[in-house]
Amino acid sequence: MTTAAPAILLTPGPLTTRLETRQAMLRDWGSRDEAFIALTAEMRRRLLALAGGGDSHAAVPLQGSGTFIVEATIATLVGPADHLLVLVNGAYGERIAAIARRLGRRVDVLTWEEDQPVSPASVDRALAENPAITHVALVHCETTTGLLNPLAEIAALTSRHGKALLVDAMSSFGALPIDLKAHPVAAVMASSNKCLEGVPGLGFALIERRTLAAAKGNCPSLSLDLHDQWQGFETNGQWRFTPPVQVVAALVAALRQLEAEGDPPARLRRYRANFDTLAAGMAEMGFRLFLDAAVQAPIIATFHSPAEPWFRFDGFYRALAGRGFLIYPGKLSRADSFRIGCIGAIEPADFQRLLEAIAAIVDEMKTA
């Protein structure tokens, strides 16, 4: 009996991982054992180092997906008397606002079109007009489209206004530059299964220690309270509740591989080579990118679906899956589209093979 080769995941996560990452999950760990406590400490230390967190921030991991850590961070840091401004130009900014409303927090939203970056001038004006705002939330790379928002500029102006900036860096952390020494950010939220190339099941926040200390009692949830989670790590190095031990082991293996690759700058170069290969080849076949090059991050590419009657996404998806490539449907509110991820343990050669498959599928669809 033969086994089919595993599919290449061209998605924003879960994504294709290295063999060493998967092998790290073959061992069982005691969650209170000294070896696992040391593994958790290494993970937290490496995560902080990637963003220059140093002594100013603490890494607080949490079981669950990226959305879990976003909800936990908002619930912990945005108190009942606080006022959150959410900067929205995609589905994940909208999700932050929805989470804050569900928590009963006071929320305002500034909205841009899905192909437009957040405007620092508009944010500056909103903060000047409403001094009651205490926190601002920004999605660094909006996974809806692959759009890159101006983190450095937003961090500078929120600091000038005395507001705490919360950054959803799910699809940027580990590749795109994030420097907590250079840019004042109260919290950066990300997960194990995107640019870090780990497996799903763990989110984390890098939070200013003084901000965490002041957040005691804010969170209405027991399991999502990042202040108490942090205190547990600071006290004995242990998780408060059963940790995803194999996911932690896989993430540490992936973080070691990231260092061996050359840290985020080297990973970004590989992802950019992936994106450039994909974009050039798709353009030759007549596919149009949704975003302007000036705001496109090399994380995920959103393409307009061809308007011609021969194109049906479901058939396109199934044909690609049959050839070993899994992509994502579009997530735009106003245009038919599909998305192809450029991250994970994949190389430009994989995208050359993808392009050959797409060319063959397009020919088949046109002549069907």
Score class of each variant (00 low, 15 high):
4 A>T: 12
7 A>K: 14
10 L>R: 08
20 E>L: 13
23 Q>P: 03
24 A>S: 07
30 G>F: 05
32 R>C: 06
33 D>Y: 06
34 E>A: 15
48 L>F: 07
50 L>V: 15
57 H>V: 12
59 A>N: 09
61 P>F: 03
64 G>D: 02
73 T>K: 04
74 I>L: 04
74 I>Q: 00
80 P>V: 03
86 V>N: 05
93 G>H: 09
97 A>R: 08
99 I>A: 01
100 A>I: 06
106 R>Y: 04
108 D>W: 04
110 L>V: 11
120 P>F: 14
129 E>Y: 09
134 T>C: 13
135 H>A: 06
137 A>T: 03
143 T>L: 15
145 T>P: 02
146 G>L: 14
177 P>S: 07
193 N>E: 11
193 N>Y: 14
194 K>S: 09
197 E>D: 15
200 P>M: 04
205 A>Q: 06
215 A>K: 00
224 L>R: 14
224 L>I: 00
225 D>Y: 02
227 H>L: 01
250 A>R: 11
251 L>P: 00
255 L>K: 08
257 Q>G: 11
260 A>V: 05
261 E>D: 14
264 P>A: 11
264 P>T: 09
275 F>C: 10
281 G>A: 04
284 E>K: 12
296 Q>N: 07
302 T>K: 01
306 P>A: 10
325 F>S: 06
330 G>Y: 12
330 G>Q: 12
332 L>A: 09
337 S>I: 05
341 G>Q: 10
341 G>W: 12
343 I>S: 02
353 R>V: 08
355 L>D: 00
358 I>T: 03
359 A>I: 05
362 V>C: 04
368 A>I: 00
